[in-house]
Amino acid sequence: MLVVRPAGPADIDALLDLAFLSGKGFTSLPEDRAVLTERLALSEQSFARDLPASEAWYTLMLEDTATGSIEGVASIKGGVGLHRPHYSFRVMTLAQYSSATGTRFDHQALVLVNECTGASEVGSLFLRPRKRQAGAGSLLARARYALIGANAGLFAPTIMAELRGWFDERDESPFWNGIAGKFFRLPFEDADRMITATDGQFILDLAPRHPIYLELCAPSAREAIGKVHRHGERALAMLEDEGFTRSGLIDIFDGGPTVTATRDHIRTIRNARSLPVQAGKVEAQANERLSLVANPGLAGFRAVLTPVRIGEGALILPEETLAVLGARPGDILTVS
């Protein structure tokens, strides 16, 4: 059975392996053992409530209980942009009109903004290729919302997600090559690494302070604006299914879209029910939609996709599923 659980320092080798598999542009999973070790320590502190809620960064692992192998990772940041500004580009229309010539022009432009300050962020969703079927991605993605919904006071009213931008068949970012890279004068890989390995001062120092008129940019760069990476299309579809919508913001490096949702309106959170659990037989029906069941604590958080039976105000689960969730009869679990 696949289960989502909190990550800890012992997961470093698996997390580093996932980082190498994730490829170029997956900023939140740098191929850097020291950075990822620090990330796991931060996650352990976050789940132990040893940090202010806004500074917490929760990392979740997707584990196959039959083999003990780690098949995926996801994360939630309690708050973004509170110490270091969280920069994005907003696509804006700038209108110009001349009464002398009777001419009006509407120009599309990129403007540097930091509008996401204080929002909580879901991200770092990555699965091993062999697990990108049979609901594993849905389990990992929705487990984040189950954790947020069960501990709503630890998270902001607005939840955001940034998706990796478009890379061409040569694994190059047209947006970086045509727009962003002209300001930073660094290889994409170096700038990408510096986001997580430094305090980000170089962004503040070098990012453009004036609107960038898109008519002056290469067509390939313009076409990449707001376009999601081919490997992120399924992630975008799942976010939209939960109620996330495009915000008009894009990533300043690769042009990928930012989507947002109101925390309590996210579908998994909105539809969740809290019920006492009982052990019993549950028979899966053909074509039955599996339910997300979570043990809603923080340090003891667990989530699985499973057939369920609800009767007499209680959630019925097989004993083996209870064991995977770390729950006992009478415990309150959430189901959605």
Rank of each mutant, 00 (worst) to 15 (best):
A191G: 14
L290C: 08
D254P: 06
R5K: 15
E71T: 03
R193Q: 13
T158L: 08
S274D: 01
V91N: 13
I195R: 03
P318Q: 15
I310T: 15
A53I: 01
S43C: 09
R263A: 10
L322C: 13
S43P: 10
L51W: 10
N114I: 00
E312Y: 01
E215D: 13
V113G: 10
A161E: 09
I12R: 13
T67P: 14
R246F: 14
E223A: 12
V304C: 12
A327R: 12
T37C: 08
I203Y: 09
R5Y: 04
L154E: 13
A284P: 00
F20M: 07
I148M: 07
G297S: 09
A221S: 02
D171I: 00
K24P: 02
E38C: 03
G313L: 06
F26C: 03
S99C: 04
G123F: 13
A7D: 12
G178P: 04
I266P: 02
L298C: 11
D254Y: 02
A95W: 02
R33T: 03
A134P: 04
D190I: 11
N177S: 14
R164K: 12
S99I: 04
T101Q: 14
L110N: 15
G153N: 03
G326I: 07
L29W: 06
A14M: 09
M1Q: 05
T262V: 10
L21D: 12
L18W: 03
P157N: 07
T245F: 06
V304F: 09
S28T: 15
I159E: 09
L325F: 14
D32E: 06
T101P: 01
Y145E: 01
E215V: 00
F253H: 10
S22F: 02
L249V: 03
A143K: 08
V324N: 12
Y87A: 07
L139K: 08
P187I: 05
F155M: 02
D171T: 06
P52W: 09
P211Y: 02
M160G: 05
I332F: 03
P6Y: 07
I252K: 11
F20N: 09
A279T: 06
L315F: 07
R263M: 05
G165P: 07
V113H: 12
K131T: 10
A156C: 07
Y58K: 06
T334F: 03
D11T: 04
V277M: 07
D13T: 07
R128P: 04
E283N: 00
T93F: 08
